[in-house]
């Protein structure tokens, strides 16, 4: 069997606020194979975002190990983590997090700017990424000229433009209505299917989690259950269609 994309063991994350310590993650073990599609569920404050931040190399664990593509990334310095974020990881956030003064195309180009991709290729690849999410004709729109679903799809295009092996999405549909949510999930599902991108998705909605292949439930910083989805949902629509 190939090396898992993500392999964490006895992972703890403790926040210290003065005298108080908050154990956001308590000895989490989790292995995610390449091309898996994982949904993380759990109540608010259960540690989902903390886990995502560690997985996304935005944060370092207090203890335990984290192997990404077989490399121990738990002890890397800030700049090395930044490099990994730029090359191997794509983020999608609940609040889209697009730069409001930049067009969709420019937002999508952003990760390549820090990966020293020449500007001609940057443009080409951003257009390609926008096409993947069905927004090739919206490249010159500013975020506030796009609907929520479209903005989230621009964010997805930005997340995948550097061909990362992992797509991390923290409640990507939290700000979207049901139809738009399904649309966005369709795009994510297709990226997982067609490109084999490993997807880790945080959600508290069951019907969103059912787009995944596997559901992990977290409570109080510990993994409560880890099961395969029996009746997986598939997005009916194709990305971008009907908008």
């Amino acid at each position: 069997m190939a090396i898992p994309v993500i392999e964490i063991a006895s992972l703890c994350k403790t926040y210290r606020i003065g005298e108080l310590t908050v154990e956001a993650l308590r000895s989490v073990d989790l292995t995610i194979e390449s091309a898996d599609f994982l949904a993380i569920m759990g109540a608010s404050g259960s540690g989902k975002s903390t886990l995502m931040n560690v997985l996304g190399c935005l944060d370092r664990p207090t203890s335990g190990t984290y192997h990404l593509d077989g490399n121990d990334v738990g002890k890397l310095d800030r700049d090395s983590l930044a490099r990994i974020r730029g090359k191997k990881i794509g983020f999608v956030f609940q609040g889209f997090n697009l730069l409001s003064r930049m067009t969709a195309l420019e937002n999508v180009e952003l990760p390549m700017l820090y990966d020293e991709v020449p500007s001609g290729i940057r443009r080409e690849r951003s257009i390609e990424a926008l096409r993947t999410v069905g927004l090739e004709d919206r490249g010159h729109h500013l975020p506030n000229q796009l609907s929520g679903g479209q903005q989230q799809r621009v964010a997805i295009a930005r997340a995948i433009v550097n061909n990362p092996s992992i797509l991390l999405a923290d409640e990507p549909t939290g700000n979207l209505d049901t139809t738009t949510s399904e649309e966005v999930m369709g795009v994510v599902q297709r990226l997982n299917d067609e490109r084999g991108i490993t997807v880790v998705l945080v959600t508290h909605e069951n019907d969103i989690a059912e787009f995944a292949k596997r559901i992990v439930t977290v409570r109080d910083g510990k993994i409560l259950s880890d099961r395969m989805v029996e009746k997986r949902r598939f997005a009916a629509n194709c990305a971008g269609a009907g908008e």
């Binding site: 996304g56 935005l58 800030r78 700049d79 930044a82 490099r83 974020r85 730029g86 090359k87 983020f91 997090n97 697009l98 730069l99 952003l110 990760p111 820090y114 990966d115 930005r158 550097n162």
Partner: peptide, 15 residues
């Protein structure tokens, strides 16, 4: 927030 976004997509401290 812009700084956070840039860092999330791979900007290093020196960038």
């Amino acid at each position: 927030r812009e700084i956070g976004i840039r860092m999330a997509v791979g900007a290093r401290q020196r960038d």
